[in-house]
Design a protein around this nucleic acid. Structure first.
Length: 601
RNA sequence: AGCGAAUUAGCUCAGCCGGUUAGAGCGACGGAAUCAUAAUCCGCAGGUCCCCAGUUCGAAUCUGGGAUUCGCUACCA
């Protein structure tokens, strides 16, 4: 097998809100893929960071009476702690507010400028005369021009659904100071995305070599337009002071818009990692890099990752991503995550109920399929699936067979291929290799499913095999054989059945390891073996290998834990939410803010 | 509003380049077993494949219309 060199990223969580179950879809999806590639024996780095800049962070720090630096440092710790507790294993978790990201932001900007791809234009924007700052559209509210509903955002009305521009609002006001905004001119810097160098490149890139999922590629065609059409316009990459971010070189009072430096944060975080571990940065980011680079993202930020980002890299002498993997949103019980239904659940509140993170990892894997479709977390299904598959079927295999080996065979397994089998019946000799081989025969298809992010199909394949092992065990009736231990044939048959079953458990553990790494670790301890890799599929436990006494590897989910989770969530939300009833998932996400008193732990 | 996606058993989902009686897991029901955390195994029942029309010898699968849900329509993180 040739060893691949792979750099993997997840999108950078914004340093303004807590990690919730929706975020975790992405980090769990990515982490499974990263762990899968690692146990294949490839050289893999999984990199992420907090996205630390922008107006919302600046304003929130002000509201909380701390510096932005203090705020993002607190959020950084909270995020990393939550991820770690869900067994998300980054090789480096950093922040965009770093010298490395600053360096690459300026480097990329300067190269774009030298290439003639930066334009400076005067634009008119809303301005808060009290706060002395320009206002993004979302910071302006007013009455809907159509239905007169109050307190509507500048883009559309949540009461009647009308779409309009901010200056159509009746009695507009700044969300920050409450005063009516005025309009004001200012110079802005634009990345000339409409330049033919960008458009021609993107037309090719988005359509070739499976850089994008098919449905994403179609979407990009829509955004790019056909040949001759000019749908892409230039991208405004500057913001005026006051702003929390990096100042643009030779442009006092002008800052890079947070979305410019966010993806560059992937480079910054990796550079930071390279310095600490003596790894060649250019091998992964140089123009002609032959290593692989994958970005896992949500479908909401495709624009940035499939258009702006490749166009920036293409024109500044860096490599282009190998592929972009976009996933859908999470719904809960078939509905969007919602505060009023108490289904806006943070990572923290899940853990505080004592729910095992492996449950959620397993469940998400059972739902994920490599497309951009949304996935649903249905609590009834969640409980049934985890309890039935993971505990009832998989873990139960070890629990059923272990006692016989411990009680009658000094904890030792027998390996049929290494022992004298002359006294066994032909059926018995056949059975074990057949079952083990049947499991091993599925290795390739499971591997392919995981590689292609069809986790749900991988899981259903693994669970079919798990069912077969339980079936085999039932057919063997070891509990009957255990009553006739004086009969050498029965005794050997019992030893073979138990050892075969444990060997199958070992194989299933390898299959499941990227998905439920901590459960796999407990299984390894039970089996008394070194950490398993994919190649170990074909290295059966040797003759005479001793396993440990079985202890519970996983307990079942209790309905009361789920009830408590929803109840607790209700209280937490009541304390920390503002009362906007936004229809928009992303907006909700942005305004979910943990009071700072809660994050200073 | 325009564009796109989805709609299959009680629940969660496969199937979908047209072709034999529409599949799985869970749940329900019946049975077996008692090694295992009441876990497991066997059997059985459940579906006008959103609706209407069309193409076809034949449609869950293709076309058109409709309903519902969701998303995108950048300068919003």
């Amino acid at each position: 097998m040739n060893k691949r060199k792979i750099l993997i990223t997840s999108a950078l969580p914004y340093a303004n809100g807590s990690i919730h179950l929706g975020h975790l879809v992405e980090y769990i999806q990515t982490d499974i893929w990263s762990r899968f590639q690692k146990i294949q024996g490839h050289e893999v780095y999984y990199i992420c960071a907090d996205d630390a800049h922008g107006t919302p962070i600046m304003l929130r720090a002000e509201t909380e009476g701390v510096t932005p630096e203090k705020l993002i440092s607190l959020m950084y710790n909270e995020h990393l702690r939550d991820f770690t507790n869900f067994h998300i294993k980054f090789d480096n978790y950093y922040t965009t507010h770093s010298p490395e990201t600053s360096y690459y932001s300026k480097d990329i900007y300067n190269k774009l400028k030298d290439a003639g791809l930066i334009a400076i234009r005067n634009i008119e924007q809303f301005y808060d005369p009290v706060k002395n700052m320009f206002l993004p559209d979302r910071f302006i509210k007013g009455e809907c021009p159509k239905c007169s509903a109050k307190d509507q955002y500048g883009d559309n009305c949540e009461a009647c659904g009308a779409a309009y521009a901010p200056n159509d609002l009746i009695n507009p006001y700044s969300v920050i100071s409450g005063t009516p905004p005025i309009t004001k001119n200012s110079e802005h810097f634009f990345f000339r995305l409409s330049d033919h160098r960008c458009i021609d490149f993107l037309r090719c890139w988005t359509n070739e070599a499976d850089h994008l999922q098919p449905e994403v590629a179609n979407k990009m065609q829509e955004w790019l337009g056909g040949a001759g059409e000019k749908k892409l316009s230039d991208w405004d990459i500057s913001r005026d002071a006051p702003y929390f971010g990096f100042e643009i070189p030779d442009a006092p009072g002008k800052y890079f818009y947070v979305w410019l430096d966010a993806p560059i944060g992937y480079m910054g975080s990796f550079k930071n990692f390279c310095e600490k571990n003596n790894i060649d940065f250019d091998e992964f980011w140089g123009e002609n890099a032959t290593t692989e680079l994958y970005h896992f993202i949500g479908k909401d930020i495709l624009y940035f990752h499939a258009l702006f980002w490749p166009a920036m890299l293409k024109n500044t002498g860096y490599r282009i991503p190998t592929k972009i993997f976009a996933h859908g949103f999470l719904t809960i019980n078939g509905e969007k995550m919602s505060k009023s239904r108490n289904t806006f659940i943070t990572a923290r509140s899940y853990l505080e109920q004592g729910l095992d993170p492996e449950y959620l990892r397993y469940y998400y894997a059972a739902k994920l399929n490599g497309t951009m479709e949304d996935i649903d977390l249905n609590f009834v299904d969640f409980i049934a699936r985890v309890n039935s598959d993971l505990v009832g079927k998989y873990v139960n295999i070890a629990s059923r067979a272990a006692g016989f080996l411990v009680n009658h065979f000094n904890c030792q397994v027998t390996n049929l291929s290494n022992q004298n089998t002359t006294h066994l019946s032909p059926e018995l000799k056949k059975f074990k290799p057949n079952l083990v081989e049947e499991l091993l025969k599925s290795a390739d298809v499971i591997q392919a499913y995981l590689e292609n992010r069809h986790y749900s199909l991988a899981i259903s394949t693994i669970m079919t095999l798990t069912g077969k092992v339980n079936e085999y065990w039932d057919q063997q009736k070891p509990w009957e054989k255990a009553k006739q231990l004086d009969d050498i044939t029965q005794r050997d048959a019992l030893h073979i059945a138990s050892s075969t079953t444990i060997e199958c458990f070992r194989i299933l553990t390898i299959f499941l390891k990227p998905i439920v790494p901590e459960l796999a670790k407990r299984a390894e301890a039970f089996l008394n073996i070194q950490p398993l890799h994919w190649k170990d599929l074909w290295n059966a436990l040797p003759q005479g290998h001793k396993i440990n006494t079985y202890r519970h590897l996983m307990t079942r989910i209790n309905q009361t834990q789920i009830d408590a989770l929803i109840d607790t969530n209700k209280q937490v939300l009541g304390l920390s939410m503002d009362n906007t009833s936004s229809q928009n998932n992303i907006k909700i996400q942005q305004y979910i803010v943990t009071p700072i008193s809660k994050i200073i732990l």
